[in-house]
Each structure stands twice: as C-alpha cells, then as structure tokens.
Amino acid sequence: MRMIGLAGWSGAGKTTLLAKLIPELTARGVGVSTIKHAHHRFDVDTPGKDSWVHREAGARQVLVSSANRWALMTELRGAAEPELRQLLGQLAPVDLVLVEGFKRDRHPKIEVHRAANGKPWIHPEDPAIVAVASDLAPEATLPWAPLDDAAAIADLVLRHAVDAAGW
C-alpha cells in the first residue's frame, strides 16, 4: 500500500482536486482510499438513528452494516487523537491512500495552492512537500502541475507516493 498527502490552506481546492484525482487514478487501474483530517467536531451519523443512539449511550465503537456498505465509528471518549500511522493501519489494503489534511505531519505531500486564496506557500517551510499543484508555478524547483490538470497531478501522485508502512 502506498500513500501521499495533499496539503494546503482552507479554500485551496484540496477536496475539489481529490474529486477529480480519484476517477483519474481508478481509470488507470489504481485502487484508491482516502483519509481526511477534520479540524472541527464532525459527525457521520444522524441524530435519532439507532447507531447514533448507541454512540450517545456510550459505545466506544459502532459498526453499521448493510448490503451496500459498512461503516465503523470510533468514539475517542477523551483519548488522544490517533496519529496518521495508526489510521493507515485501520484501512483495508489498497494500492494508494490519498491523505487530505494532516498538513503538519511529515509524510510526503503535494502542496495544493490557489493564488486567489491569498495564503503563503507551505513548501518553503515544510521539507515533506515533494511537489506542487497550483494555478501558478512556484518559484521553488519542485515538480509542478497546473491545478486544473488532473492527469498531470495523478502522474505526480504516482511518482511521489511512498510505501505506507515505511515512511
């Protein structure tokens, strides 16, 4: 299993890019999973549903299964947030894991940058940035692909992804 991150400031277009990258990569025969870091409280469950009631009652984990999908929710209940390495270990084997967020972690990342966002580049301060996807070329000598060119960015992803167990 290989992995690479997409890192950028809020509003840079990371999620939009992922929505284009995933079909591009799967069309090339690459099995893709994702891990998304959220900086805020989020919920994947609906209040009032049985699984929500189970969690609210204090269950540490709730697994919901149907003929179409299954989902496992884990409540930390005050425990520390798991590190990216731990989360990678929770995934079923796949060819490639795309990590959105975890900007401060040291795994290899492609910086997603949009000039109109008015935010500074991340790569000058983060040696884990291995390439850039942006609407303008960076001054650095990093490999670069235009933000709207999913095929070129997929090439960067495949070239720079690393063994998920070895980083």
Rank of each mutant, 00 (worst) to 15 (best):
L76K: 04
Q61H: 08
L147G: 07
A140Q: 09
D50M: 04
A12Y: 11
V62Y: 04
E56P: 07
G8T: 08
V30M: 09
R69W: 00
V112G: 09
T15P: 14
V99L: 07
A154N: 06
P127T: 05
A145I: 13
P146K: 11
E75M: 03
A27N: 06
K49L: 08
A165W: 06
D163C: 01
P138D: 05
I35H: 05
W70A: 06
G89W: 01
T26H: 04
N117W: 05
P23A: 06
A57L: 14
V132F: 00
R60K: 14
D149T: 15
E75D: 15
S65C: 08
H123E: 10
L63I: 15
A165V: 08
I4C: 13
Q86N: 00
A137Q: 12
A154T: 08
P23F: 03
V30P: 10
L147N: 08
K20A: 15
L98F: 03
A19Y: 11
P23I: 00
P23S: 06
A151R: 02
K20P: 08
E125P: 02
W167P: 03
S66Q: 13
F42M: 04
A164E: 09
P143N: 07
A140T: 09
G48E: 05
L84Q: 06
L25P: 09
L147A: 10
R85N: 07
E75S: 13
P124W: 02
G101T: 07
R69Y: 00
L76R: 06
R2K: 05
D148P: 02
P138W: 03
S51H: 13
G29A: 02
V64Q: 11
